[in-house]
Every structure is written in C-alpha cells, then in structure tokens.
Nucleic acid binder design. Structure first.
Lengths: 299, 299
DNA sequence: GTGAAAGCGCTAACAC
DNA sequence: GTGTTAGCGCTTTCAC
C-alpha cells in the first residue's frame, strides 16, 4: 500500500504533485500525471481517507438519526436520503436510537467530533434546545415542523394531513372517531392531536382520550387496539391510523374477532405503503422518500 | 473547541497526559486528571475523531452493503447489525447499492482506504474473487453460503428452508408447484432452485421454468405474478414465495381477480414478517435479525 | 507518573 | 507547473 511519499519517490515527483493528481487538479504536466498513476497502480496504492479527512477538516459523511431502521416509515425516509447522498458523493452513518436520548446525544456528539459533516434527525426524543446547541458544530436538519425555531427542517404537514383524514371520515357520516399514533409525544403527534381536536370541535363532538391509542408502530400493535376496542361499551365508529402497518393489523385482527370493517369500524390510514394496497386500505400518501431527498439537500 | 495542546496548556500538563486522561489510561495522578477534565469542560473541548482515526489506524466503523434499505428482508438484517454494533461501540456506514456493482466496489474501496474497519455484505452482485481480493484490507463477512471459499460468512440455509417448504406443499397433495424469488442470480437463489429441483425429482415431476418468477421483491410484484398466472393454460396449484411481501401481493391481487386461495392456489412464504400474520399467510420464519447480530460478531 | 518528540498520511499556502 | 514545508490533532514510544 504505502503512502503518498512513496508514490512521489517512485514517480519522481513531489508529494504535492501526487496530491494534485489524486485530486484531479488540472495543471499537471501529462507525463508526470501518467508517472504518478503508474506508481499508484504499481504499489496498489489508495489514499488513507482518515488523513484526508483530518487535513481537510471534513468527511463527506452525514449522520442520520433514526429510531428504528426496520419500520417502513423510517426506512422509506432513509431510502430517500441514501439515494440522494450517494448521487452527491456523500456517505451515510446510521444511528439507530430506539428513541434512547443518550444515543441521540452520542450521535450529535459525532458532529462536534467532526465525524460527520451534518446530521439529519428523522425523529427524536431530545429537546430542541439541545439540538440548537449542537448546531454550532455543523448543519442539522429535522424532519418535523420546528415552529419558527432557529433550526432547519423539512416536514410533512401532519396537521393538514390529519385534518384531511378527519374530514373525510366526517363526510362519510362518522362522528365517533378515534386515532392511533406511534408516540404521544413528538411534534408530529402533537400536530395530529391538534387536528383531531379541531375537527371534532367543528362537529361539536368532544375528544375521547380512551379512543386515542399510542405506541402503535407495527402490525402486532393492531391486535392490542382491537382488544381494547372490544372491551369498550361505547366504541368509535372510525379510526384514523398513522401507519399502514397498524391499520393492517387492526383490520386483520378485527376481522378475526368478528368486527365488520368498515361497517362496524372504518379505518383510514397514512403512508401509502404497499401493504395498504394489498389489503385495500384507504390511505393518505405521505411523500417520505421525497422528504429524505430534501433533507439531504438542505444540508 | 481548541485542540489537545490548548487543553494541555490550560491544565498545566503535557499533551501526552491529556491523551491519557482522554483514553482512560489508569496511571495519572488524580489532581492532574481533574485539572485536565476542568480544562476540557471550560473549553468545551471534544476530540477530533479524524485525528484519532488517523493516528490509531482504525475507525470503529463498519460498513454494510445492502441493495435496498427499504425492503423488510434487508432492514431486518440491518436492524440486527445496528443494535449489536451500537452495543459494542461501533458505528455503521450504510452503502445502499441497488445491486449496482460499481457501488459495491466503491464500498469495498472504503475498506482499503481505512474508512471502515470491516464490511458486512448482505447481498451482492460483485463476484467472490473480487471480494477475496479486498479481504486483505480487513474483515469481510457475507450473508450467504460461501461454499468453502476463503471468506467469512453467516448464512441461513436457504436450501434446507426451501426444501422444507416444498415438502410441506407436497405433503398437502400438491405436485404442480412454482416459486417466486427476488433475483435469479445470487447464491441464495441458486440454493433455492436446487431445493426446488430436488423436491420435484422425488415426486417425479419436472421443473417448470414458466412457473418460476424472479424480480419479486415488493407487494406490487405480486400483481405481475397473478397476471402471468391467469394467462397460463396450465397453472401451478401451489407457489413457494421467498418474501412475505410478495406473498401478500399475490394473495390480495389473486383474490381480487377471483382466484380462490388456497383452493386454486396455495401460497407458502418465508420471513415471518408481521405482514404475514396480518394476512394469515403460512410462512417459514428466517432468523434475519439474529443473522445480522452474528455477522457483526464475526467481524 | 509524566513529558518530549516522532510519527500517522494528507492538503494547501507559498515560493520559485 | 512544480517542490518545499508547515500544518491538521492525536497517539505512542522512550527516557526520565
């Protein structure tokens, strides 16, 4: 392997010239350039990228903070970021946090340590103040509405999407409506809650806390929701579900338990992942992959 | 921020001592250690990790080569790797390749450049020889059977799993059996094909190339399969499907088109992802997350 | 226990 | 166009 100095010696030039060749600097005499490439071939040389990073003070790596790689919502965003990053010569360092605040901070530390040039936060537990504190070390982009905070973000208008969903159900004649989300905290969830309340207010219904289900992420969570519903004396006639996966679970387990869908329970969900198509779930599409793309470009 | 020298000056010690404190080297006098930590706090200092990487000659990052982040099969493996990596103080650099051989080689180059300490290849297009050539630069682990090659690997016995599936269907009385896989090439697929042929041989049936569907990755591919089936004069009575997603698609689109399942077409699939539970698909579980974990430890 | 100093391998300002 | 050289910020002998 060797280093740049050996290449220089073998090619009969200076290390600076080797560096120039390596970085496609235009003004190098053709014969020297050739000599350098030959030496590189001969010694099977490759730059030590850590030295490059140190010297340049940047890495062309961006970090991505994500709670679960394995959930379609997040893997779709990741997909978008990954594709775009690669097209632009960037690499992706993956921080899977499980919403563990310590892991989130670890990731943020990587920005300070210059391990990454920037960070995209797909979803988080850590508070905004903390993030703002880290943004002095490099660009940070959130995938949520930051409400005029001094932070970059790209976001889907979950308030609007949820309101749309509510209105759709209301127009279908529903008045007793509940919903399912991943976490009760989180900006996106608060937007959804606000939309829920707003829509109910307009039809003079009061929100029903017992019809709000959180921790709904995967298909299996649908089972829990169905079980809860069956135990209630008064049930919602419709459910707005923030993930296709969960909707699929509710529909399937519901049917198993004798719930007629949509007669007993209408289900409207989000994301438009393939699973909804398979199950003929009515769903509202969210442009997640595009969001990932945009997030990358903001950085 | 500053650097180690400033810390040394402020704490009244040498840079070596600062380094010792930073690396939790035991033999440093308590008072100096304290002075160093105070200086660190005061200057809000963090190590420049690139300098550490360069100096140490390693990065504690491992690369993961994966065709699509967004497919459950791969995101489950990634999940396993990510969880285990984090627990061991490693980070993950994600290379999403779309099976583009150039991107795979780029990723392998990162090993040579010392960007990563090792690489896990979840699925690949590039040939074994190439990979062997790169393994001089660091550990590489494949997630497939490497057939006695001089390469590390952790793999699921897809031959066995497929054979099990075939026998299950045969026991149910099926003789006209087809299958669906992601790619026709690839070691895992070849193992499946071998199992398919073997099982048919035992019941004196010949393989039917027209009943083999490749490029089956997502739910929507199920639609294509169903369409093909409907065009055939002679159809299989059962299908072994290498992904729950695709099975879900086949079942749903099949039902839409009036196919009775399982009466007209039995479907058996793999992976045991939640979607199969939702759709009551019979499925054979594959320990993907565990495989990811093991892959990490081999490195 | 601690410090001086020699790297790690590259980039880039500067001089020619 | 090209070479010299001073960093980049840290780790790690080696000597005391």
């Amino acid at each position: 392997m060797g280093n740049i100095r050996e290449i220089a010696k073998l090619a009969g030039v200076s290390v600076a010239t080797v560096s120039r060749v390596l970085n496609h600097y235009p003004y190098v005499k053709e014969e020297k350039r050739k000599a350098v490439w030959e030496a590189i071939e001969k010694l099977n040389y490759t730059r030590n990228i850590n030295a490059v990073h140190l010297s340049r003070g940047k890495t062309s790596i961006i970090g991505i903070i994500i709670p679960y790689v394995n959930h379609p919502y997040f893997s779709t965003i990741t997909e978008g970021i990954a594709a775009e990053a690669l097209r632009n010569g960037y690499h992706l360092l993956l921080f899977q946090t499980n919403y563990d605040i310590k892991k989130e901070i670890d990731a943020l530390e990587m920005l300070k340590m210059k391990q990454v040039d920037g960070i995209i936060i797909c979803s988080r537990t850590v508070d905004w103040e903390r993030i703002e504190a880290y943004s002095q070390y490099g660009p940070i982009v959130l995938c949520e509405d930051v409400k005029g905070r001094n932070l970059s973000s790209v976001s889907i208008d979950h308030y609007y999407a949820f309101l749309m969903g509510m209105n759709y159900l209301i127009k279908k004649g529903h008045r007793k409506i509940g919903y399912c989300i991943g976490r009760i905290t989180g900006t996106n969830s608060k937007a959804r809650q606000a939309a829920y309340q707003e829509a109910l207010k307009q039809i003079n219904e009061r929100p029903r806390p017992e019809w709000i289900f959180d921790q709904c992420l995967y298909i299996e969570d649908g089972e829990r929701v169905v079980a809860s519903l069956l135990r209630m004396k008064e049930r919602p006639t419709a459910l707005l579900v923030s993930s296709d996966q969960v909707a699929a679970g509710i529909i399937t387990f519901g049917k198993n338990k004798g719930l007629k869908i949509p007669e007993n329970l209408a289900v409207l969900s989000f994301d438009n992942h393939p699973i909804s198509e398979a199950l003929n779930i009515t769903t509202i599409e969210l442009p997640l992959s595009v969001m990932g793309k945009k997030a990358f470009h903001m950085i």
